[in-house]
Design a protein around this nucleic acid. Structure first.
Lengths: 237, 237
DNA sequence: CAGTGGTCTAGACCACACG
DNA sequence: GTGTGGTCTAGACCACTGA
């Protein structure tokens, strides 16, 4: 056995993956491990990075597949827009699924971020965005009941709280302060996005303000790298 | 044995870590695995996420330590500034180490991003930023020799190409287009930042333009989450 | 040198998808 | 049921640190 099984493995796997057509299936893990002359644990560890780069996709009970070119949702961060609007502008088709609307009470942490008393009534909207028959973003909006009640969400509601407010025209919105983080997927988010626990994600934590300076919406967004490309133009000095 | 060793493990470990004072050492991995009633592999997998969150730090040959509160470098993305300038503005002390300056030739990929002929002479400046006696950022600048030669870098050069150009006053700089990604650490970057391979990092890919529209500098930046907090103010519609 | 974290192995059992 | 990926185990050896 070589002294650096891991690096050798990665290049071997890279060649194998690139040599196969899109959507084709790789050998099963036990078979592939035997072929490569390593244990299954080592094989899986090496595969992790390829999955993180979006080159392969593993589906439990089915197999491991080569991923072809994927549509990319590219956007500047200067202007706030919904994923739906972004996709439409680019000419890409996205679908909302797993749309859930809940009525919840503010715990201490939520009360603090929304500047409200504890136990205030809130509306929570969570949803998963699909494109290319794959979940690529998981979005959770939390906002005071005064701005949105579950009852207001009739048919035709796509899940975008931002678009709904813009369509409604009230409250008047001004800006969103968005923090950008790199994180690993929790069990909950991993399930929603059909990735492994501990896979890398881009996270936005956003506070949306009305033109009166009030916090209208607190949102958490999780994006699959590879399907999104965010950029910002920074001025010097 | 319980049916979900992993989740139980995580909460047990979380309690243990929080119950210990900063900088204290955890039991060795074999000991801890025995105490928790799991195999060492499972223990290490659970520890990964804590390390990713910056709660613990593992050092080969030494041990695993609880990390206390760490200084955070917070910054908006609207304005481009060097890490040194940012740290100074916040009142934090950072040190540059592993400063390397090379003279290289543009390969095909570099030539394309810098809009130059292949084999053009380039200057590459790479460095690691320390704070709190820990590497927290790894920065690589690549730029045409006409803008910076290795010879220009006398003593007092901190490593910031941006600051040097601003001090020098030429070329005149306008904006930087910065792409923001969540990635896992390659072996090279992992070594520089003293983290595990596959640990999550925030990456900036930046193109710095002169006011003539020419690309002056192409930079890759890798940030340890937990030590940096980047945000952007987005306007609506 | 002894002790630590980093890597790897061979095998087992589980949860899941699909015929 | 059969075969897949997901998880876990017990043990081994390596690379590194610091006394």
């Amino acid at each position: 056995m070589g002294q650096f099984p891991f690096q050798r493995l990665q290049s071997q796997l890279s060649e194998l993956i690139h040599s196969l057509p899109a959507d084709s299936r790789l050998p099963s893990e036990p078979d592939l491990a035997r072929q490569m002359g390593v244990s299954r644990a080592t094989l899986r560890e090496a595969m992790r990075s390829f999955e993180g780069q979006g080159m392969i996709r593993r589906r439990q009970g089915v197999g491991t597949f080569v991923v072809g070119k994927v549509p990319v949702l590219e956007s500047g961060l200067e202007v706030l827009e919904s994923i739906e609007t972004l996709a439409h502008r680019i000419g890409l088709s996205v679908k909302t699924s797993a749309l859930h609307v809940e009525r919840i009470e503010a715990d201490e942490a939520l009360a603090r971020v929304l500047s409200l008393p504890v136990n205030s009534i809130l509306t929570r909207v969570s949803r998963v965005i699909f494109t290319d028959s794959r979940p690529v973003a998981y979005l959770v909006d939390t906002l005071p009941e005064e701005f949105l009640t579950p009852l207001e969400l009739g048919s035709g509601f796509t899940g975008s709280v931002l678009d709904l407010m813009l369509r409604r025209g009230s409250p008047k919105l001004s800006t969103s302060r968005t923090e950008i983080r790199a994180i690993t997927a929790s069990s909950e988010v991993a399930r929603a996005l059909q990735v492994q626990r501990d896979d890398v994600l881009l996270q936005f934590i956003a506070y949306l303000y009305s033109d009166g300076g009030q916090i209208v919406d607190y949102s958490l967004s999780y994006f699959l790298p590879g399907y999104f490309r965010f950029h910002v133009v920074r001025r010097v000095g």
